[in-house]
């Protein structure tokens, strides 16, 4: 009789242990997914600025027509939906590169640089870029937390049992490590 009570308690404790361990993993995975969704939200904020940027800039920029068309197309593709996470990341990287190109090219157009509209837009862009970078860093922190749980004992046992897999981190580019400062590109 007594033995069976002890066994029952042991079984209960074990079950509780498994439930808690499982929940911890789920919570961390959800945090990571939420962080990814935030990146998405910030990226959308950037998509919203693109038509504005193109409209402001194209009056001045004659030689960058191609880049402007490319960026518009990339935006359309990104807005179309039905994209996998990897495709989204890839598209956003391309948009970042194209935008960087435009911002460097602005250097050749002093009129544009003095345009009040453009300056305002530039402020918004800097802001969105910085927010995007913050969201990526938040994602990386959440994923590191999750990956630690997946790989470290004892939670790695549950991770194996329930099939939790580690997630990939964002590569933070050297440029992003610095403060995003588009203005510094102009002041040579």
């Amino acid at each position: 009789m007594e033995n069976s009570v002890v066994l029952l308690i042991l079984a209960g404790v074990l079950l509780l242990f498994i439930i808690l361990g499982y929940n911890r993993l789920v919570r961390r995975r959800n945090n990571a997914e939420k962080a990814f969704a935030t990146i998405d939200a910030m990226a959308k904020k950037r998509y919203d600025l693109i038509p504005n940027l193109v409209a402001t800039v194209q009056k001045y920029m004659e030689h960058e027509r191609e880049t402007l068309t490319e960026i518009t197309e990339l935006r359309a593709k990104a807005m179309s939906g039905n994209l996998s996470d990897n495709e989204k990341v890839d598209l956003n990287n391309k948009i970042s590169r194209a935008m960087g190109g435009i911002m460097v090219a602005v250097e050749n157009y002093p009129d544009l640089k003095a345009n009040q509209n453009f300056l305002q837009l530039q402020g918004s862009l800097n802001e969105v870029e910085e927010q995007l970078s913050a969201a990526r860093r938040a994602y990386n922190a959440a994923v590191t937390d999750y990956n630690n749980a997946v790989q470290m004992f004892p939670s790695n046992v549950f991770a194996m049992m329930f099939g939790f897999k580690t997630k990939l981190l964002f590569e933070i580019s050297e440029k992003e490590r610095q403060n995003v400062d588009v203005k510094s590109l102009f002041s040579i």
Partner: peptide, 30 residues
């Protein structure tokens, strides 16, 4: 808020209401 700058973490510990906004404010250069 667990931040990635190890030297910063040696001297400080950060708390924030919003994980993303805290990092927006505490940029890597700041």
């Amino acid at each position: 808020i667990s931040l990635e700058d190890l030297e910063f973490n040696k001297y400080f510990v950060a708390y924030g209401e919003d994980q993303v906004e805290a990092r927006y404010v505490l940029s890597t250069s700041l």
